[in-house]
Simulated scan of single mutants.
Amino acid sequence: MKALRVLNNNVVLANDETGRPVILTGRGIGFSSQQGKAVDPTLIERVFVPADDRPHDPDADQMAEALALISEEVLDAVVTALGDVGIEGRESTRPTLAIAIADHVAGALDRAARGTVIEYPLRAEVQTLYATEYAQARLLLKAINARMARQLDASEATALALHLVNAGFVSGDLSFTYTMTGVIQQMLAVVRERYGVDVSHESMNVARFITHVRYLFVRVQQHQQLTGQEATIGVGIRQHYPEATRTAQQLATIVELRLGRRLSEDEVSYLALHVARMTMEADGTAA
């Protein structure tokens, strides 16, 4: 790999063997690199590949600059911890994740130094709706603290989990993830109140519903809703589960009001199928 720009001692913007721009991090990697010269591969700890790998990609420059603004201690702790807990491999296509987490860690350490305490009101929701990410976040927090002179509070696992969830979306900020969390809770409340069923995450069908809705939000955000299967699948679902379909239409209205996006008929049909599964599980029947 050849260096394009040396951002600081630990961050270098380079071109790989195919000519795509990559961001390289590693202790002292910038100190020994020169523009146009090959980068010492033994100093490369992590390779970040921006999603848009065009030559001279301005996003790569901006991401490299953002990484360079983060302190050496925090960047090293976050980048190493992401690899150690298995969230990211040595080569990552999500530099925004490392940037977001490192920026959050830096802010949390600053708040702790000033004695500022933040309560995360979504802790219960995060533990329930995003159990996998929350478990990863706890491991990540432990790994980060193992490499830091100053320690983050255990409550920061909630924020880290939200960043991991947010990594699946196009948007770089957490606002969409916060909205999604509230909407999922609202949807589950509708099912609970309408059918009087337990919607705890221990239920397999509730867990499947949550997973489905999360991917639905990704499709909505990326303008890739399911379409074209209405004639074969949607009609059958509506005929077999008319009550669940009415509930799904109500859920679709919630999504439209909160996101300003109308769901396709196919998306509504699949919501109906998941609603039917949850209610039938409570009745002891199979969908």
Score class of each variant (00 low, 15 high):
Phe176Pro: 02
Gly107Leu: 00
Thr96Glu: 15
Glu91Val: 15
Ser175Gly: 12
Val85Arg: 01
Leu174Val: 09
Asp283Trp: 12
Val191Cys: 06
Asp57Gly: 06
Ile23Asp: 01
Ala14Tyr: 01
Val190Asn: 04
Glu256Tyr: 11
Tyr215His: 15
Ile29Phe: 03
Ile237Val: 13
Thr232Glu: 14
Gly89Ala: 09
Ile87Tyr: 02
Val6Thr: 10
Arg123Asp: 15
Asp16Gly: 10
Leu188Gly: 10
Thr132Trp: 01
Arg258Ser: 13
Ala276Thr: 02
Ile101His: 03
Leu263Ser: 05
Pro95Glu: 09
Ala108Ile: 00
Val255Thr: 09
Glu73His: 10
Thr80Ser: 15
Val255Cys: 00
Arg219Thr: 10
Asp16Ala: 11
Glu119Ala: 14
Pro21Phe: 00
Thr128Trp: 05
Tyr270Arg: 06
Phe169Asn: 02
Leu43Trp: 01
Thr181Trp: 03
Gly86Gln: 04
Ala98Pro: 13
Pro242Trp: 11
Gln224Thr: 08
His223Glu: 15
Gln221Tyr: 07
Ala108Pro: 00
Val165Arg: 10
Arg20His: 13
Ser71Gln: 11
Ala14Val: 05
Gln34Asp: 11
Ala68Thr: 02
Thr128Tyr: 04
Leu43Val: 04
Leu259Ser: 07
Thr132Phe: 08
Glu119Pro: 00
Val22Cys: 04
Ser171Gln: 12
Val39Gln: 03
Ala131Ile: 03
Gly284Cys: 04
Val235Gly: 04
Leu129Thr: 00
Arg94Gly: 01
Arg123Ser: 11
Ser33Asp: 08
Val49Ile: 15
Val255Asp: 02
Arg192Thr: 11
Leu152Ile: 07
Asp153Gln: 11
Pro55Asn: 06
Val191Ser: 05
Val190Gly: 01
Phe176Gln: 07
Ala100Phe: 03
